[in-house]
Amino acid sequence: MPNAKIIPIHGEEPIVPRLVDDLEPDVFARLREFWEFVQSRLAGDYSVDDLGFDPEFNDKVLMALVRPLYKSWFRVEASGLENIPDAAGALVVANHSGVIALDAVMTQVALLDEHPVHRHLRMLGSDLVFQSPFLGEIARKAGHTLACHPDAERLLSDGEIVGVWPEGYKGIGKPFAERYKLQRFGRGGFVAAALRTKTPIIPTAIVGAEETYPMIANATVVARLLGLPYFPITPTFPLLGPLGLLPLPSKWFIHFGEPIPTDQYPDNAADDPMLVFNLTDQVREQIQQTLYRLLLQRSSVFG
């Protein structure tokens, strides 16, 4: 076929080298970026805030580790992000479940990845977290602090998004049969903190976390021996050993609800226990109603 077009094998623009050229700047830039990151970390050349929050380490390492869990394992669907302010402080109050508080971590990912201005969630944890080796260290680096008035109010008045799980261990350590039934909401300390700093409360409902580790029993003797608030027995743990630590891949929904404003109350409102109780109940009720609504909407646990 003399008329056939000749395609040169070694033409003027070889395909393979061009691909490398296209890739080169990007790949090398990224490698260089990564190397510079490692170097600056090793030299201690980064800054942490007063509470020990290391935003660089959190965003580039910790969040990168849990993001696959958020995206692929639980396939979290977050909604109501418009209720979270862009710059001001707010108090996110959510239901707690699932034995190891993965719900808190997923809420953190939701706010960082899906909020338009990528907000960091600063959680308030129990003292048990901060006395545990590794856990306490990582929690501090991820920006969390002890649930106490001074720290909570400092963060809120600095315009941070603060996360609190008022059910505490009663929530994460509750049996599977009681899933999505909110436990008592502590002593309402979080409401007092919001009132004092006049920041809105965002009642937040998390669906899916309660099925990750269905706790069928609590080995109280083991818990007491280990000094833990509970020791979970699930269908897979401790039966299957480490494999039992794998959470079930339930489908998750996180809804950040309508904010409850606190700035219309007088300055000393936090000292009125009745008001604090009423607001606590209002927050709890709003979360419970949202939970029921989300549960009705989901097609199945593993959706």
Partner: peptide
């Protein structure tokens, strides 16, 4: 210093 202490102390705490 300890796990039950707030992260930051002001003079009156």
């Amino acid at each position: 210093s300890g796990p039950k202490a707030p992260a930051l102390f002001t003079e009156e705490m």
